[in-house]
Design a protein around this nucleic acid. Structure first.
Lengths: 239, 239
DNA sequence: TGACTTAATGTACAAAGTACAATTACTCCC
DNA sequence: GGGAGTAATTGTACTTTGTACATTAAGTCA
């Protein structure tokens, strides 16, 4: 009755989108791998990768995602959203990744299935610092993501699609803008996430259905043009 | 550098929604577990469960879902859609499931992470027959799903939510109605999936944007009222 | 005070959503 | 053949939403 059963490694990978308001760019947080060793048979080229690592025994997937992100980047306190699992048997079998696996995994030939998470965050509220096998942490514009380790480019792509599909349900602006913001800031955010442009007047009409905006008794200061009205959010509306 | 690494079992679980047109019901396909053994220490109560089992070495998750469904129910040829992964460390540790695990799993204490799939299908086009550790296969109305093994009730719930969120994008009617159908049949389908009711006139207006309907030179026959116009689908529109 | 820059604002039109009821075409039964 | 029963068919008025589009206003700076 009992079949031979194979066991696998489970990992989590985190796609952290950082909103860079100054430059109105959407960036993704990557780690740069540490060189595994000096005397390797193959010359090893460190790669960029998503923060991700194996799940521990007795640890839920959600908890693992939070822990792994913290270990590799010292970033914590984010709400990570699970969106897809990748399990191609060959996803950790590519030549480019083998040296790294040999050095960092006790069982480098093991299959690894990964459960992926994403979140969107105001870039400046986190201060990533490399940890564990991350030599460095870097932000990269989502329009120019470099080649990544394993199947991580595919993961980033799927996360981006998913977040765009859900933007109007997710009230993402709530956590991505400062407490007081102008309508232009709100519009910039939506435009960069959706990679598009809107008409100002029409944008406000639409957005007011989803987000409850409160005009404040305060205006923008120090700009060399007509200062804009500041707003804050009331609450998240449900659909 | 290398951390102790734990390995896990990976399984797939399939939520097969069957559309029962006669009775306008939406049902879910369950297996009834075989009794593991006669001389068990605990009296074992067979449970209902989703069709699901461990993923094989060298097998993609998608392939595993297809294979497992076939082994347990002899159902094949369906397109399964991955929707979520469940990895609570305690999901296979409940008392009710332990006897079964002892008998069917070479490592019954192992943690099992499951990747879940769903699909919607016209109930009558498949003819489930039990296989492997399924003693029986049964359909159950999604409004009255019995207590299931492991965390399968939670999986069904999440699948139902997901399918409702996506119904207008998925063109599900295309595969769930016969080639020639009436507008009433189309409306019944949407109503049962969304568990709601629509106004006839308004429903047609709305649906014609998503589904391209072709009126045929044919009418319903053998009904004791005004016979309805038959339609077929042209193509799936993209959004 | 004038030049510069971006904010603020409204209207007409088109498209989509919604509420609502009378007539029609078939079958069955007498 | 006629009447009863049943569900199909059909349209309109109203509201809401989407969209295209350009002028005036309130600051800063030199």
């Amino acid at each position: 009755m009992k079949r031979t059963s194979f066991k696998n490694h489970i990992s989590v990978d985190c796609v952290i989108f950082g909103y860079n308001e100054e430059e109105n760019k959407l960036e993704v947080l990557l780690i740069e791998q540490k060189e595994p060793s000096q005397n390797s048979t193959h010359p090893y080229v460190p790669q960029f990768a998503l923060p991700g690592d194996l799940v521990n025994e007795e640890e839920s997937l959600d908890d693992a995602a939070v822990r792994v992100l913290k270990e590799l980047t010292h970033v914590e306190g984010l709400h990570l959203h699970q969106f897809f699992s990748f399990g191609d048997p060959l996803r950790v079998k590519q030549e480019k990744d083998i040296e790294w696996l040999k050095f960092y995994r006790s069982d480098p030939d093991a299959r690894v299935i990964t459960v992926s998470y994403y979140t969107l965050v105001r870039k400046e509220i986190i201060n990533p610092e490399p940890g564990s096998f991350a030599k460095n942490v870097v932000w990269r514009n989502i329009k120019r993501v470099p080649p990544l380790a394993f199947d991580h480019n595919q993961i980033v792509k799927k996360a981006t699609e998913d977040i765009r599909d859900r933007i109007y349900q997710n009230h993402i602006a709530y956590q991505l803008l400062p407490k007081k913001f102008t309508l232009r800031q709100l519009q910039n955010l939506y435009e960069v996430v959706l990679n598009t442009e809107f008409d100002k007047r029409n944008f406000v009409k639409r957005i007011k259905k989803d987000e409850e905006l409160i005009p404040l008794n305060e205006k923008q200061k120090g700009v060399m043009h007509k200062p804009a009205q500041l707003y804050s959010f009331k609450m998240k509306k449900k659909r």
